[in-house]
Write a protein that binds this DNA or RNA. Sequence first.
DNA 1: CCGCATCCGATAGGATACTG
DNA 2: CAGTATCCTATCGGATGCGG
Lengths: 138, 138
Amino acid sequence: MPKTSVEYCTGTDDHARQWDHRAGCEVRTVLDRVSDKWSLLALSYLSERSHRFSELRRKIDGVSQRMMTVTLRQLERDGLVLRTVHPTVPPRVDYELTPLGANLHQTIQVLSSWSEQHEAEIAAARAAYDARISAVSA
Amino acid sequence: MPKTSVEYCTGTDDHARQWDHRAGCEVRTVLDRVSDKWSLLALSYLSERSHRFSELRRKIDGVSQRMMTVTLRQLERDGLVLRTVHPTVPPRVDYELTPLGANLHQTIQVLSSWSEQHEAEIAAARAAYDARISAVSA
DNA sequence: CCGCATCCGATAGGATACTG
DNA sequence: CAGTATCCTATCGGATGCGG
């Protein structure tokens, strides 16, 4: 019984009302799934074509076997990825996006585009902020 | 000198190329800022109007004073929020979205809408998955 | 080949107490 | 009122080793 983030929605009445009214509750479901270290890359590669486990693991540089498994399981649980086990020896497992997963991937591209367009602005803001802080503490 | 996630982009050549080509690097900058526990709510409230510190803290149910400060500092550092200190006694500090912050908030609404539209689908997938798992282990 | 279990370090975030 | 500093816990994710 994996833990989810429903607690944000099911706390006190005020708590629940806060999230419901602000439409901030539902987006957390998605954000909590997608904002981890590897999900985004997995979705990205799977959006091109289906991959088997090791193939995906090789492409996603730096991921441990454990996290590759965990990540794919979570995506599968949320209906974003379909897992197909071929009963061969050695075993072969294929992963592909579901329509829902492909749909989400498209939606995330919007945020991705925004990030690319505004990254310089953010970097500049950070540099300015850090300079300001250094100046104060100096 | 706060730590960022640039490490994802500046690792080995392969590592960097991976992110650059897949447009997955830039979006992490934004995702890492916005996917924490409180940033989204802060952006949401500030998108309506400016708030002073305690006012915002009262609205965001459950946030500790520490995390309210930390969250706002991060948003400020990235140029999403403007912080104005009024040198009165007692002190008064106002927070408001910058144009960049407002812009980002709008962009996130896209993801938020998607989440609302597909939440039932995700919930169903989870229920089905969990049922399947329970059945296996039983 | 794929996945699970275990251990372990790093980090996020809560509680509390203290300053200007 | 707004912020800082300290401490403490829970969770994330990496490393390694075993099993089907």
